[in-house]
Simulated assay, not measured.
Amino acid sequence: MASIKIAGLNKRFGDTPVLKGLDLSINDGEFISFLGPSGCGKSTLLFCIAGLEQIDEGSIRFDSKEISDLGPRERNIALVFQDYALYPHMTVRDNIAFPLRQQKLDDTTIGKQVAWAADVLGIEPLLDRLPAALSGGQRQRVAVGRAIVRNPSALLMDEPLSNLDASLRVRMRTEIRRLQKQLAITVIFVTHDQEEAMVLSDRIAVMKDGIVQQFAPPMEVYAKPANQFVAGFIGSPQMNFLPAELCGGSTGQILGVRPHDLKPAGWTNGGLSLTGELLLIEPAGPFQFLDVSVAGHVVRATCTDPSGLSPGESITLHASADAVRYFAAEGGTRINQHYMETESRIHAL
């Protein structure tokens, strides 16, 4: 297993900077997710760690050993791709054994390692099948088996669940997390799906435009976002944002409150109160989403019982003071203060 330290990493494609002065320290045995929108540089960073992309400046160290100039085979990493990349003419057994045969290990060692990987992943009955005879989830297990069979220092995964249907994705992410805990292996997992990152990770590196915006445990990223981008990217539905001066705050600040913290209620001193026109009620299982027009802005709230509520009517929403966040309008940095307004509420215009 390995700890990974990235310092001052820069990567350009031609004249276009893709990764900009990145610094990250990943502990041995951690499960880390690189999370962000398409084009933010998360897969490029993964490929730089794997050795598939050369960096322009900076360093990458595995357990204090500089590996920036080493080829992929010399880094003792395993990489699982989005498209599985299984050899269609090989059985599951031979697919898993392939990297060991490349190392020219003896048949007895190869057989033991393949049996171990198949047992860990629960795919023993599939060993003599071809990939065409497997489901998507089974192919993903085979791809993971081929990755772990040679005991790599780190397992790198590039959006490995994106080709699976929703229910299978949930099952597979549970399997991946169980496997990581069982093997105590360092995992770097690239995803654009915030729910995957929140569920799987010890820490999340949220990226935008080649820069890590925040690197912290999932609930810290959710509850204490470093800036407005992180606050808006993490959480579903997205956090509501309003100009702070509309709510009694300072000019040049943005007020943010999550829909799950904003609920129909009467005025309560010490918290945020918004009054507006109810536009839409959206069923979502155990709760309902409420879209409300407030001072020309549409905000989203939640409630468990929408009886008595009708679109077109006036509605007052409330959030506790500690659920409100402030961000600088310029740059979006989070400001460490709580909502203190106690005497005024904002009404629809």
Rank of each mutant, 00 (worst) to 15 (best):
T268C: 13
L272N: 03
Q253G: 04
E277A: 03
L246W: 05
G270E: 08
G270Q: 09
V292Q: 12
T251C: 11
A265W: 04
T251V: 13
P286A: 14
R258E: 04
Q288D: 14
L274V: 01
F289V: 06
I281L: 15
S273T: 10
C247M: 12
R258T: 06
S273H: 05
A244Y: 08
T268R: 10
D261L: 10
E245F: 04
S250I: 12
E282K: 14
S273Y: 08
G248W: 09
L255K: 00
G276F: 07
L272S: 06
G285F: 12
N269R: 11
A284G: 02
H260E: 15
G252F: 10
G266Q: 13
G276I: 10
G266R: 15
G271E: 12
S273I: 05
T251Q: 15
G252Y: 11
L272H: 08
T275P: 03
Q253R: 10
L290K: 05
G266E: 14
N269I: 13
L290Q: 00
H260P: 01
G270I: 13
A265S: 13
A284E: 05
L274N: 00
R258Y: 08
S293P: 04
G276S: 15
V257T: 00
E245Q: 08
G248R: 08
G256Q: 03
L280T: 04
W267M: 07
A244W: 09
S293C: 09
L274F: 05
T275S: 15
D261T: 03
T268P: 07
F287Y: 15
S273E: 00
L290H: 01
G252A: 10
G256N: 06
D291L: 07
V257W: 05
S293G: 02
P286R: 05
V257Q: 01
G252L: 13
L262T: 02
A284T: 13
D291A: 09
G266T: 06
L262H: 06
P243K: 02
G248C: 10
G249V: 07
G270W: 13
L280F: 09
Q253N: 11
V257N: 02
L279W: 01
V257D: 04
L279Y: 03
C247L: 13
S293K: 14
A284N: 10
L280C: 02
T251R: 11
H260F: 05
G256P: 08
S250H: 06
L246H: 01
S250E: 15
I281G: 04
T268I: 09
N269A: 12
T275G: 15
L272P: 07
E245Y: 06
E277V: 12
G248E: 08
E245H: 09
V257S: 06
P283H: 05
D291G: 05
G252T: 07
L246T: 00
P264I: 09
S250M: 12
K263W: 10
L290C: 00
P264E: 09
L255M: 15
K263T: 12
G248T: 07
S250R: 14
N269V: 15
P264A: 08
